[in-house]
Simulated assay, not measured.
Amino acid sequence: MTDAHSTHATGGGQARPARVPLTFVPLSTAPLELDTSIPPWPGRQVPLAGATLHVRETPGPHPDAPTAVYVHGLGGSATNWTDLANLLAGSAHGVAVDLPGFGQSEPPAGFDFALTSHAAVVADYLAGLDRGPVHLLGNSMGGAIAMLVAAERPELVRTLTLVSPAVPDLRPDLRRMADPRMPLAYLPVLGGPVRRQLASLTPRQRAEQMIRLCFADPGRVPEHRVAESAQEIAGRLGLPWAADAINRSTLGLIRAWLVPRARSLWQVAPRVSVPALVVWGDRDRLVSVRKAARTAELLPRGRLLVLPGTGHCAQMEQPVSVARAVLGMWGAVAERAW
């Protein structure tokens, strides 16, 4: 079934030789109740061979339930998945990771913050879960990382959900910045005062900037979620590695967009063999929705859901719509209909 309110395709792409239409996304009709009052899920530190990850766990319906693993985007954290993980908890045990240098995961010494390095850490974590292949979900930079994991380690992934994945999008547009003054911060003479102005922003102001950047309708964010974000930002300001992590991860993402075509993320997508759902907001300011159809078309088992009136973090802005699509995919895969 398709939902005319929430499913349509945009953008160009290669011809797709498939019997199932790209936008034929089955949407679950299961009753879903969004409770935005719940706080972030409890977290713990998990040691790996070369790193320690902080993860937040959402209990599933029973010990043998499938596992869903959530990977946040640039500047985000595991708390970006609080509501969606709750909506999916009736079907899967959820684990949201803080990538190295983000949230409460301290990066290991010598970590280079390349996309491939982040992906290697996530793959190591999945391998250590010993719960069989997982449902892997990623947003923005986390979507690019999840796609790399699915391509390189398909035995670890049962299904793949990409929410506005950070595929190459090099268009110059100041609207993609949380603060339009940021480019001025790198100029001689003028840069110093601008950097001081940016540094003087309160955690609350920074949280509001990010919400305006990532949401099509910032009014959808409950007040306590804004306060939670501000509190998390305040905590990160005291971490000696936080600023370096976001700066170097940003450079790592840009470098991944600039590599020769043979190593491009566009060449990674066709190597993903698992069922894949691509979700995009049609008012995404950070990665253009024009990339949506091409991304889904290049995934051999990919389908596309474009949500109207939605920004870059659909799992936060429209969690019920995303949950219905994810559950629909999981059901279709179980019935071998994807």
Rank of each mutant, 00 (worst) to 15 (best):
D179P: 08
G281H: 08
L253V: 09
G143W: 02
G11D: 00
S117M: 09
P180I: 13
H118W: 06
T29N: 09
R336K: 12
A120S: 13
V20S: 03
D282S: 07
P107V: 05
E223D: 11
E57M: 05
E106D: 12
T36I: 14
S77G: 14
W280P: 02
W241T: 04
G43D: 05
D83T: 15
G90K: 00
V320Q: 01
E232A: 15
I233C: 07
L84V: 07
F111A: 14
G252N: 13
R204G: 06
P193R: 00
R175L: 10
P172Y: 01
L170R: 11
L299C: 06
L162Q: 05
S77N: 10
V95Q: 05
E152A: 15
L126T: 04
H135M: 06
T67S: 05
V55C: 03
H62Y: 12
A51T: 07
S105R: 12
E297C: 11
A256R: 02
V268G: 02
R131F: 14
S200K: 10
P107Y: 04
L327T: 04
P193D: 05
L129K: 04
P61W: 05
L258E: 15
A337M: 09
H135Y: 01
L160V: 02
Y70D: 08
H62W: 05
P165G: 04
E228G: 10
L174N: 00
R303E: 14
L286Y: 03
L213D: 04
D173N: 13
N86K: 13
R294G: 00
P222Y: 07
A150W: 00
V97C: 08
P203V: 06
Q197H: 12
P21N: 10
T7R: 11
H8S: 05
P42L: 14
A144M: 10
L32F: 06
H72Y: 01
S249W: 01
A166Q: 11
T79G: 11
P240C: 02
A216P: 02
W241A: 01
W41G: 01
L27W: 10
A78K: 04
G13M: 13
T202F: 09
A146E: 08
V149R: 04
E152M: 14
T79E: 15
F111W: 01
S200V: 11
L129V: 06
N80F: 06
A119S: 05
L34I: 07
H72G: 11
A89E: 10
T79Q: 14
V20W: 12
V55Y: 12
A262D: 14
M182R: 12
Y70A: 13
L156C: 04
T10P: 04
M1L: 12
T295G: 05
I246P: 05
R56I: 01
V278A: 12
V322P: 00
G128Q: 15
V279D: 11
T7D: 03
Q231K: 11
V272Y: 09
T295I: 08
P39Q: 11
S6I: 15
L48P: 00
L87I: 07
G142P: 00
V226C: 12
P222V: 09
S229F: 10
P172A: 08
A185G: 13
L299H: 05
A68I: 07
